[in-house]
């Protein structure tokens, strides 16, 4: 088990009477890319803001690099960078001047060559004023600001929000480069395929509570298995009506099932109808995510 870069212990935030997050316990290991998933209002941004000491917890505590986020915030923030979900920039400032200012506030040791490379890779012209940028270009400025100092930890709130697919891909490559350097990334996203492609582990938050933390691999394995069985003789409609099994559809001679438990029983029922083919398509993170929220891909409950 690696060293935990981020730890939260019963972290709770209430906004007056309204719940922000409740008893969130999570640990992010050094060198991993941790995806933080949840719908709007679930508590992702609140958690990240507590880590950055932008807001104070109502109870519980959070540590980064073993230091308390509230008491030793300055020392922590020297070693990390943060991309807020609602990125707002000074409209009359040029991107270059803004990046210079952030670099000097950090510690001034930014590698300008690397910064230029980032601008190039993201196709950003940093000589213009912020107010001249589209939303996507503003987001690129935020991405450059987050990556340019090569911090030990990046906390990114929806880093690809507003970016076109090509630039999203570049950002994911940057995340992978950070991981390859042995540095840590904690990021939230709504784009589940990108989480699946770069994250080692994910935490799923719902209604302010962390309901699951697991590796992407184990999540996709443990959630449920999808079985597509092709038969010589089609079984009756209620053949697979049993606990832990859901028949999701039929297509010609094929029956599509989601199996949470009782795989042996399913096969036992299926064999007499002469199975011609068995497929088990991979379950995507998106399906697992929606499964946690009791919804299907097409939006039904």
């Amino acid at each position: 088990m690696g060293i935990n870069v981020i730890e939260t212990h019963d972290l709770t935030v209430y906004y007056g009477k309204h719940r922000g997050i409740e008893k969130v316990n999570l640990a992010v290991e050094q060198g991993e890319v941790f995806g933080f998933l949840g719908p709007n209002g679930a508590g992702k941004t609140t958690t990240q803001r507590v880590l950055m000491d932008v807001i104070h917890p109502s109870s519980g505590r959070a540590t980064i690099f073993g230091m308390d986020c509230q008491k030793e915030g300055v020392a922590i923030r020297k070693r990390l960078s943060y991309l807020p979900g609602e990125l707002n920039l000074y409209p009359n400032m040029r991107a270059n001047a803004f990046l210079d200012m952030l670099a000097s506030l950090q510690d001034g040791s930014t590698d300008k060559h690397y910064r230029d490379q980032l601008c190039q890779r993201l196709d950003l012209d940093p000589t213009r004023k912020m107010k001249e940028y589209s939303r996507g270009n503003k987001q690129k400025v935020g991405v450059v600001a987050a990556f340019m100092d090569k911090p030990d930890l990046l906390i990114l709130d929806e880093p690809t929000s507003g970016l076109d697919p090509l630039v999203q891909q570049t950002v994911m490559e940057l995340v992978q480069e950070v991981k390859a350097d042995g540095r840590t990334v904690f990021f939230s996203s709504h784009i589940l395929p990108e989480v699946q492609s770069v994250c080692d582990r994910v935490g799923i938050i719902r209604d302010g509570q962390l309901i699951q933390t697991a590796s992407v691999e184990s999540l996709t394995k443990q959630a449920f298995k999808r079985l597509h069985l092709t038969f010589q003789n089609m079984p009756p409609a209620d053949a697979f009506t049993m606990d832990g099994v859901t028949e999701t559809g039929r297509d010609g001679q094929m029956v599509m099932l989601e199996v949470r438990s009782g795989l042996a029983k399913v096969m036992e029922v299926a064999v007499p109808y002469q199975i011609q083919d068995v497929e088990s398509p991979q379950v995507t993170l998106e399906e697992i995510f929606l499964n946690f929220y009791g919804r299907t891909i097409n939006g039904g409950k």
Binding site: R49, M52, D53, V54, V74, A75, I76, R77, K78, Y82, P84, E86, L87, N88, L89, Y90, L102, L105, Q106, D107, A145
Partner: peptide, 14 residues
Amino acid sequence: DSGTLELVVAMPLY
């Protein structure tokens, strides 16, 4: 209100 303070507070400054 305009949202720029969040970035400043996230810098290593007291």
